[in-house]
């Protein structure tokens, strides 16, 4: 078990580098908003969701609009319902306690690495957990470094640190490519995400894009194993 935790940890190291890199941007922003380092650390440990923390720091203007911030976090993290659901086969047969303990350390990055490993048959919940530890560590190191050195990195855009986010998920995405049948779902996902990002406020486009893309293979002609009793599409 510890061996698998370590495997997950190591598999996430390359991604962790970039997590630390964009974490440092969050640290800089948090310092500018007078958010103390221990508050930032509390957020890291308790929320552990990059995009949501960015938006929270962005909305961090006293007096805090608690309902508004909570709803924003809800909208951004709605994708975790889908992410959680996609982890179900991995958790098959595990106890409720095991699920309760393991689901906290699920971020986009270690989830994507785990899904790719799962398709090769090498992942388990401990692999996911090890990855979560790795990402959490990198996230804390990155954000706190940014918070401390805030003034040192004057121009993060100059080093394309804002682009690191896109780069890491692009690289992760390629590990999830399953071949031609993915082309149409991915196209639909990309186009609807871009469209809805412009049409709707907030982060609804993530969920809408994800669902609309994944709906495409639902209408593919059924293979032998599937679709008992369903005739209409």
């Amino acid at each position: 078990m510890l061996g698998v935790v370590r495997m997950g940890f190591v598999a996430n190291l390359p991604v962790a580098v970039s997590v630390a890199a964009y974490g440092s941007i969050l640290g800089v922003l948090a310092a500018q908003k007078q958010i103390t380092w221990h508050l930032l650390l509390t957020m890291n440990l308790s929320i552990f969701a990059g995009a949501a923390q960015f938006v929270m720091v962005d909305m961090w203007i006293p007096p805090l609009r608690i309902v508004e911030i909570t709803l924003a976090v809800l909208a951004i993290n709605l994708r975790y319902v889908l992410i959680g659901a996609s982890l179900q086969p991995l958790f098959q047969g595990k106890s409720l306690l095991h699920k309760l303990l393991m689901m906290h350390l699920v971020a986009d990055e270690n989830w994507a690495v785990t899904m790719a490993a799962y398709r090769k048959g090498t992942a388990s919940t401990y692999f996911l957990f090890g990855g979560g530890m790795c990402i959490l560590l990198a996230w804390c190191l990155g954000t706190l470094t940014g918070h401390t050195l805030g003034a040192v990195v004057q121009n993060p855009e100059g080093y394309a640190l804002d682009f690191v986010f896109v780069a890491v998920f692009t690289a992760l995405l390629m590990t999830l490519w399953r071949g031609k049948p993915d082309l149409a779902p991915w196209l639909v996902a990309a186009v609807s995400a871009v469209l809805f990002q412009q049409m709707l406020p907030g982060k609804w486009y993530i969920v809408i894009g994800g669902i609309s893309g994944a709906l495409v293979p639902v209408f593919y002609p059924s293979t032998s194993e599937s679709d008992s009793g369903e005739t209409s599409s």
């Binding site: 896109v166 609807s192 993530i206 894009g209 679709d227």
Partner: peptide
């Protein structure tokens, strides 16, 4: 975990990740 629902869930990881970064 079968049929259309399975195909939806199997496609989901890629489409979520792509939706996250496409804009």
């Amino acid at each position: 975990r079968s049929g259309r629902w399975k195909r939806f869930m199997d496609a989901l990881p890629g489409t979520i990740l792509l939706s996250l970064i496409a804009p």
